[in-house]
Design a protein around this nucleic acid. Structure first.
Length: 806
RNA sequence: GCGGGCAUGGCGGAAUUGGCAGACGCGCAGGAUUUAGGAUCCUGUGUCCCCGACAUGUGGGUUCGACCCCCACUGCCCGCACCA
């Protein structure tokens, strides 16, 4: 397009999007000689509302990095796909009476158009869709591997259940006691459900964090979620019975201070001794009450401990033989440790409150606190007292000694515990991967034979979950009834589907070889492309998708399917974009920003650049369109530079330092995800050059290359206008800076007297003090100071010159 | 309760990690252009009693020098949570 007409983004952006598509500019080449770079974004859920600004912020970072890497000569894999199974689509289908397949296809179409209009450099030939049978065939295949290796099992226990969505939830989906999807309170329900043994991988998932480059906050949150603690299991005999009560504690050193025991309401010992417990009716009533409380209520009642003493059972302390009463209380959870604790009120706040309420003895065993006021929980300064063999020891010494003693006596041992629970894996819904399992009356649970995969979702008329909390699939007889693959007897299929997280737990592997019909991906492709070099996504997935996919990858690694144990070398995150009111964007608040409005008005280049200029990438930022005009002016300025451009292929002397400085800043800032300051540096360079009213072809070319990752369309156009051959986006043209240019230049050195700034002088970077002094004496601005009288002179070359004059 | 983070002009945010606080952008003011408005371009823009002094949530400390390090406090945000 003609330079003097001004820049028309509508025409130019379409033009280049078409050229990129036709030339397959962004196609990743398998087994190429160039160094590979695999950049990954969290593939979107194609919802009906389309792309939102959060997507743009999340995607543009890796987009910029991928574009830079391509122009640095890397073979880049930057793929896109659709995480398309899930409740919103299903609910929408139910509401409108449409087929979820149809709705999904429509949404994918919208998303594709919107993403292409952003000019993203995805390799569209590798697009995956988790709802495509060719894809979920392999999701089911991985499930079978898990099942065959004992990592998927069925068990009856209390699970999180959302009464609104009518679906079982994993712990990761019900954080804070509310449903991830609808926000309603989660209740505990006893159900027979599928679990994946993620807990068994706790230690491996923790250790793996040592070998990856994840931002610290991500590691911390995963560590918290896994929740490792070390302590001891101690066996208490039940007085007069053969049975024992095993407890877990992190403070075995306080064993002599135990004055009672507490077990969870669901503890099996209650049923076992039902006929010996005199107040069993009262205990059962308490258990029923506890069941009714959801997690939210339990937290609310933290300060108000409740419980019932078991009349008829007592436990014996293995170190001193004292008999202790046993209580049932809901502050002890069946799901953690052994579901039973020894209570040491003197040194545990919860036990202290309970003891006060029930008027139980409090025995101090660590000195240093005032137990008449509150529990003394400190482990550092105290000395053991009233503790037999432990008296006089410090807490750490006492821990070590008591564990050794318990082990020797056969009544205890060191024990590590993890908070993370096994992953509840089935959902009572239609729009998910069918679980490929058959229940045979003779053989039990049997996997669907591999050659029968994919086990397709049957077409149904009604997608509604049933009133009994069973999957809609359970009502389709042709699907349910089948033959046992082992013995041929009539059998029934599992009718629940997998959770939304299943398809996303391995999609990054499929991108490496998306059309393979023989394997989830070929070993060569996995070896060449894996692992992912840089993965960016939201903090909200750190204790969900990110931990699930690391788990699946570790299993696949151990089975020899995948050649790397950690799937992601580097993981970063983007801050949330809040509504203009500073609140989280949501439909109900009415503060949602539609990116399309801005893309239509200013173009994709301006919008992408503005999103990155908005602020610190990792921080939450309220949306504001106030300064988007500044980015438009910036792009217009660089466009206008074409009219004052000379044919000189190099840099003019006046701009050499500026160019090298800008190249360094932009290159380094992109890799550090400081996208805002890279834009600022380019603006500064352009402003300087604009005010000089002349630019060389060499300068403008390099500026355009630096800007291309942010604003690729306008840069391609200028690049072409400048007479360069080929497509900028796939050319190996990223400029490098010459450190010598930046080293040798003169610098401005602030001159201080007694720490107060008096002025600035220009000097060589490595000038010596005497030379600078001479320069100052000759400078009339500093005539008032007698530098020779300085008691002390501080000189940091290139940084500061400070005279202390009394 | 435990863990992590943040606090800088009217606004979004910079500051090479101890060395010119406020880069860059918005906004605002003045000017140019225009019949006018918009758009665009130039100049200015932390505060004040404008030589100079005071300024990075508050109070102290270390240092020639502190947004940066240390101590205490205040206010926001995030994560986990009767986790034994």
């Amino acid at each position: 397009m003609a330079i003097n007409e001004g820049y028309d983004f509508r025409q130019t952006e379409k033009k280049w999007q078409k050229i990129w598509e036709e030339n397959k500019t962004f196609q990743a080449k398998d087994q190429d000689d160039r160094e590979k770079f695999y950049g990954l974004i969290e593939f979107p859920y194609p919802s009906g509302v389309g792309l939102h600004v959060g997507h743009i912020r999340a995607f543009t970072s890796i987009e910029i990095i991928s574009r830079m890497k391509r122009m640095q000569g890397y073979n880049v894999l930057f793929p896109i796909g659709w995480d398309a199974f899930g409740l919103p689509t299903e609910n929408f289908a139910i509401k409108t009476g449409r087929n979820p397949r149809e709705v999904t296809d429509e949404n994918i179409k919208t998303f594709t158009q919107q993403l292409q209009a952003m000019g993203y450099s995805f390799d569209w030939d590798r697009t995956v869709d988790t709802t495509d049978p060719d894809y979920y065939k392999w999701t089911q295949w991985i499930f079978l591997k898990l099942f065959e290796n004992g990592l998927a099992y069925k068990d009856t226990c209390y699970v999180n259940f959302c009464e609104n969505c009518k679906v079982v939830l994993a712990n990761e989906e019900s954080q804070g006691g509310v449903c991830d999807r609808c926000g309603s309170e989660v209740v505990q329900m006893e159900k027979n459900v599928w679990f994946l043994r993620i807990k068994q991988y706790s230690e491996k998932l923790l250790e793996g964090l040592n070998e990856v480059d994840f931002l610290p906050r991500i590691k911390v949150e995963q560590q918290n979620w896994i929740g490792k603690s070390t302590g001891a299991e101690v066996t208490f005999k039940i007085a007069g019975e053969e049975d024992t009560l095993v407890i877990y504690t992190t403070r075995p050193d306080t064993l002599y201070g135990a004055t009672f025991m507490v077990i969870a309401p669901e503890h099996p010992i209650i049923d076992k001794y039902a006929d010996k417990i005199k107040n069993i009716d009262e205990i059962y009533a308490y258990r029923e009450e506890a069941k009714k409380k959801n997690e939210f209520e339990r937290v609310q009642l933290v300060k108000d401990k409740t419980g019932v003493r078991i009349d008829g059972l007592r436990a014996v302390n293995p170190v001193n033989g004292s008999e202790l009463p046993i209580f049932v209380a809901d502050y002890v959870m069946m799901g953690y440790g052994t579901g039973a604790i020894m209570a040491v009120p003197a040194h545990d706040t919860r036990d202290y409150e309970f003891a006060k309420k029930f008027d139980l003895p409090i025995i101090e065993v660590v000195s240093g606190g005032d137990i008449s006021e509150e529990a003394y929980t400190d482990c550092n300064d105290g000395i053991m007292v009233n503790s037999g063999i432990l008296d006089g020891l410090t807490v750490p010494q006492a821990k070590e000694k008591i564990i050794a003693y318990l082990t020797e006596q056969g009544v205890g041992h060191q024990q590590t515990n993890y908070n993370m629970k096994d992953w509840a894996f089935n959902r009572q819904r239609y729009w998910g991967e069918p679980i490929p399992i058959i229940e045979c009356p003779h053989c039990g649970l049997v996997g669907v034979p591999e050659e029968e995969l994919p086990l397709r979702l049957p077409e149904v008329k009604n997608y509604k979950p049933t009133a009994t909390g069973e999957s809609p699939l359970s009502e389709i007889e042709e699907f349910v009834n089948c033959k046992c693959p082992k013995c041929g007897a009539p059998a029934k299929r599992e009718t629940d589907t997998m959770p939304q997280w299943a398809g996303s737990s391995w999609y990054f592997l499929r991108y490496m070889d998306p059309h393979n019909s023989e394997a989830l991906a070929s070993p060569e492709a996995l070896k060449y492309w894996g692992p992912v070099d840089w993965y960016n996504g939201g903090m909200e997935h750190v204790t969900r998708h990110l931990i699930y996919s690391r788990f699946w990858n570790k299993v696949l690694y151990e089975l020899g399917i995948v050649p790397f144990s950690e799937p992601y070398k580097k993981r970063t995150y983007q801050g949330l974009i809040l509504g203009e009111d500073g609140e989280k964007m949501s439909k109900s608040r009415g503060n949602v920003v539609n990116p399309t409005d801005y893309v239509d008005k200013y173009g994709a280049d301006v919008f992408r650049t503005y999103m990155m200029f908005l602020g610190d990438y990792e921080k939450a930022v309220p949306w504001s369109s106030n300064s988007i005009i500044g980015v438009k002016r910036f792009l217009d300025k660089i466009w206008e530079l074409q009219s004052v451009c000379t044919d000189d292929p190099g840099y003019s002397p006046a701009h050499t330092e500026l160019m090298h400085e800008t190249i360094k800043k932009v290159t380094e800032d992109i890799l550090a995800m400081k996208f805002n300051t890279a834009v600022a540096a380019m603006m500064k360079a352009v402003n300087t050059i604009v005010s000089d009213k002349t630019v060389t072809k060499g300068e403008l070319s390099d500026l355009v290359v630096l800007l291309a990752p942010y604003a690729p369309h306008i840069c391609e156009e200028i690049w072409q206008n400048l007479g360069h051959e080929g497509i900028l986006s796939s050319s190996n043209v990223w400029p490098t800076y010459d450190p010598a240019v930046l080293e040798n230049r003169s610098v401005e050195i602030p001159v201080q007297v007694n720490g107060k700034l008096k002025g600035v002088i220009r000097a060589a970077k490595d000038a010596d003090v005497e030379a600078l002094k001479a320069q100052l004496k000759a400078d009339e601005r500093f005539a008032a100071f007698d530098f020779d009288a300085a008691v002390k002179t501080i000189y940091v070359p290139g940084k500061i010159l400070n005279f202390i004059i009394r």
